[in-house]
């Protein structure tokens, strides 16, 4: 935690614009994310939300705009102005990225323990027993049986892989986590448990997060504030409950109205 006065946003975007050839994927995105906040980005496929996330996390380079991250190691930094070395280091220490498909965020060919321990080993952890204990502890926290520690993720179910991916990210105690449809593609009951898990962890670890989803139920459960994107632009933003209970923009109203009552 950065001192008593939390006066700076942990992540800021100004005028973020990303193009693919002639097509504009996201345009003029402005927002501030405050420490401890979870910001949701919702919209249908093609709205530009995943592109936005990738730009924020340094995975894609925007054509215009600035993204500022308040790092513990270097103070406020321009994410795309950093050297590749620093950005890669940040993404393994202070950041996490939970992919929709856990296979994209795991090493499928090594054990769960190695997956979780990697970030620790990358910054110099050299005691096998300690690394293993920490990994086992984290399996527990994400509600996976500890006797699965030496199993490879290929033997895990989809839900377990997602939990493992979460553990692999959180072991380095990141300050900011990016999530791209973290429960997409999972059974509804599995989704619910993982959402509960995430909500608990975000609270306990006081994480800040940017969460992309097309599922308004997920947004309602996990996010404090919401940005609604359509055609690459933010059409509405505000406190999650306000946006979902009293949508102002026609597009948001349509999204909210099309949730099938269960």
């Amino acid at each position: 935690m950065s001192g008593a006065l939390l006066s700076a946003p942990i992540l800021s975007s100004r005028g973020l614009t990303k193009r693919f050839g002639g097509r504009i994927a996201c345009r003029d995105i402005d927002f501030d994310l405050w420490p401890g906040e979870v910001l949701g980005v919702v919209g249908e496929s093609g709205s530009g939300k995943t592109t936005l996330l990738n730009c924020l996390a340094g995975r894609m380079t925007p054509e215009a705009g600035t993204i500022t991250y308040d790092s513990a190691a270097y103070g406020p930094v321009d994410v795309h102005g950093l050297s590749e070395a620093r950005r890669r280091l940040l993404s393994r220490t202070e950041w996490g990225f939970v992919n929709q498909d856990a296979r994209d965020g795991l090493r499928m060919g090594v054990s769960a323990g190695a997956n979780i321990g990697e970030r620790l080993m990358a910054v110099g952890a050299r005691h096998y027993g300690d690394i293993r204990r920490t990994a086992a502890d984290w399996l527990d926290r994400v509600e996976i049986e500890q006797d699965r520690l030496d199993d490879r993720p290929t033997t895990y179910s989809g839900g377990m892989r997602q939990r493992l991916q979460i553990a692999r990210n959180l072991v380095s105690k990141p300050r900011l986590v990016f999530m791209d449809e973290p429960t997409g593609g999972l059974d509804v009951s599995v989704q619910a448990r993982i959402l509960d898990l995430l909500r608990g962890l975000v609270g306990t670890l006081n994480l800040s997060a940017v969460l992309v989803t097309h599922d308004l139920g997920v947004a309602r459960l996990l996010t404090h504030r919401l940005m609604v994107m359509q055609g690459g632009r933010v059409v509405e933003d505000g406190l999650t409950d306000q946006v979902l209970d009293d949508p102002q923009h026609a597009y948001t109203q349509m999204l909210v109205a099309s949730i099938l009552p269960v």
Binding site: S111, G117, M121, A122
Partner: peptide, 11 residues
């Protein structure tokens, strides 16, 4: 970035 090597030894 030698994490991957240490991971193989862990494994």
């Amino acid at each position: 970035e030698y994490g991957v090597m240490q991971v193989s030894l862990y494994e």
